[in-house]
Amino acid sequence: MINLVQNEMTKLLGKRRFIIISVIILVLLSMFTYAQARQAETIKERLGTVDWRTELQQKIVDWQNRLSSAGQWREQLQIQIEQSQYYLDHDINPSEPGAPTFIRGFVENSAELFLPLLIMIIAVDLVSSERSMGTIKLLLTRPVSRFHILLSKYIALILSVSLVIFIFGLLSYIISAFMFGNQGWAAPVLTGFKVEGGELNISEVRLVSQWQYIIQQFGLAWFISLVVGTLSFMLSILMRSSAAGMGTMLACLIAGAILSNMVSSWTSAKYLFMVNLGLMNYVSGTAPPIEGMTLGFSLAVLAAWMLGSLVVSFAVFMRKDIY
């Protein structure tokens, strides 16, 4: 079994996908860090100060001004204002300058779409490429069961997902530490904000260190990526063409991003996997796309989709005629 997994890893590493992924991450990272550095400069210019309290207060006032014309975003904005006010009242800087804060924001924003896309690059042709290249016959003529072959592929996928998340974390650390400095790992982060009925519930708000918060975020990002990876894996078995698999998966992810903004009245949409990918929002305390969704619910839905697609993957792969 270990040899099989290693065999799969050799194939994956040989495709140089990890290098492509690293380059994509690097390019995006340098753009984001540059943009953020510029933004900090503009704010400093506008307010004539680097005091975060002044900056945050200004943001709150700007949001309050937008409230009257916010329309459907009103609720979201109100929650944001209350949360920021809570930070201000407790004298905690929500964005302590430094690498950790950048990483925190970066993971939060990339977990839903960017990271899953990177994972898709690896997962979407894991099986279909072997079929289109014809190497699958060689693989199946070996004296191991089909179950073990697929299992080794799946384990290799899990390992790759973990590796991609690690590369993502490492690169963002290196670049942001270079741009913003390495301080702020122990800075306090407020967490446990809950949104109930459009109101911000602060009864369970507690304080965690930033490094702890980041590890938890990465855990969630890993899970989201794994779910998307597993679904892509299933598609690579069901579909002969990698392009078709990629297209299907992309459509789902983008549909999820759009749906999250407009499904609030279609409640049964909460069982769709793509609406549940915003796990980070529960931790940071923004309103869920559909009333009543919680972290536990979303985790359960995603796990169910993952298990389901695994069952389909194995059932199909073991029965399929390969020619």
């Binding site: 973990s162 590890i215 890993w222 972290l295």
Partner: peptide
């Protein structure tokens, strides 16, 4: 490490 992070979150 990531499983640990996920577990910690849960």
């Amino acid at each position: 490490l990531w499983i640990f992070g996920l577990g910690w979150t849960v």
